[in-house]
Design a protein around this nucleic acid. Structure first.
Lengths: 232, 232
DNA sequence: AATCGTATGATTGTATACAATAATACGTAG
DNA sequence: CTACGTATTATTGTATACAATCATACGATT
């Protein structure tokens, strides 16, 4: 029942092209390539040991994903994420995560629900111990389970994209200790709403969960590193 | 203020690559290439008078847009849209159109609001006359104005994508006379809510507008042409 | 007759060669 | 010294050549 691989069916990691794509993508997300940095086809090709062709194809896809911007006959540049972009994305995500939780309430399997419970309890433990890495891992997994159990390829694809996109920012915020516990409490409430088959409540809680995450981020001023204004 | 070109900034139509991409895309959307049809690089290249290279790059992008599916070393196939895909996309869109109307309420300019009013009145006229083509055109434009006036690149990009995606289906439903008038009445209500700066109402109305459009489509059984089951 | 294996052809994947465009540096004219 | 124009170089855009993979057909073997 409602469960398929949410991770990149497109661009299988084991083809050359897939590897090139994922590598460049990862390098942008991880911050190796800075904002507005120009990416040269030959340089990246040499680094990965391939010719320009696969690199160019990867560029076209990265452009569509919004990670780079290609200006014809000039070059490819890492897109700058503005503060407004971050806000917009979080607001959009909040709506979609709500919808996802609603649908998950209807379509989640026993196994998935159990993993969700387990996730919450485990995260509680790590929160007490202050294990930030495990917390981050469990947080990712929690949302991923929801994406898988909403039983919608379309929605899952969108949310996975946004989730990874937002990692560029979130990578900084999770090291901020305070919210870990609170965030997991919200996870628990969402999980319990789903368990109780209360779609409306699940949707509202999941929606608020993202809004809260954003508010927390803003409060801590964790995204000031990004452009205030539109990049040119 | 809040107004930039919502139409494909990516893939400028005037580069070769952009033209190739848009042409293939259009041919899929228009139904020239049927579902599950295999697209061969050389054949399409010859048809457009270009080599395989630009075609391949376009393919990679179309894959990411979800219009085709590339299986490594085999070929590119037009993706099948299932009935569930259509439903999911409409539900997702309904949420996002709601958000868009909310934001548009805050950021719309005088000029945009005026064009919105004009649009509604004009559409009323054409509805009475039964001018289906003009109705469709005005409907597109109505939503486009909202995308432009929501003042969010991120949201606008998503909605434009979905809107065009959904055209594959909608192309059939607009020829169905009944809803034209009702749809435009809903447009008017949305426009008036925005004019009155009532975000909550604008959001709800825009949301319901899409849900209604979907319900109408289902009622008329206009998407039975699509796969009932997952394509393989 | 059925099945397996091999050979052949078609198609995609990758690399390279060539063309077009843009950026830079330099030299000359004012 | 500045400004303009030209030459040079670097980089992208496109086409083509070659390699790898897959599908098909045919024939041999059981």
């Amino acid at each position: 029942m409602g469960s398929y691989d949410v991770k990149q069916e497109v661009n299988d990691k084991y083809s050359l092209r897939g590897r090139v794509f994922n590598k460049i993508r990862e390098d942008i997300l991880s911050g190796k390539y800075k904002e507005h940095e120009e990416l040269r086809e030959v340089a990246i090709g040499e680094e990965l040991g391939v010719s320009r062709t696969p690199v160019r194809e990867a560029f076209r896809q990265l452009e569509l994903e919004g990670l780079i911007q290609i200006v014809p006959n000039k070059g490819a540049y890492v897109t700058g994420i503005t503060a407004k972009d971050v806000e917009d994305i979080y607001m959009i995500r909040s709506k979609l995560e709500g919808l996802c939780a609603r649908w998950a309430t209807d379509h989640i399997t026993e196994e998935q629900l159990e993993e969700l419970e387990e996730n919450v309890y485990l995260a509680d433990f790590h929160a007490q111990k202050g294990h930030l890495d495990q917390m981050a891992e469990l947080d990712n997994r929690f949302h991923q389970i929801l994406y898988e159990s909403c039983d919608s390829k379309q929605l899952a694809r969108l949310l996975v994209d946004f989730h990874e996109y937002v990692l560029r920012v979130r990578r900084k915020t999770l090291s901020n200790g305070g919210r870990g516990k609170v965030s997991n409490d919200e996870h628990r409430q969402i999980m319990e709403a789903i368990k109780a088959k209360d779609k409306d409540r699940a949707e509202i809680l999941a929606h608020e969960h993202i809004v809260n995450a954003y508010d927390n981020m803003v409060k801590n001023g964790l995204y000031e590193i990004y452009d205030k204004a539109e990049p040119e």
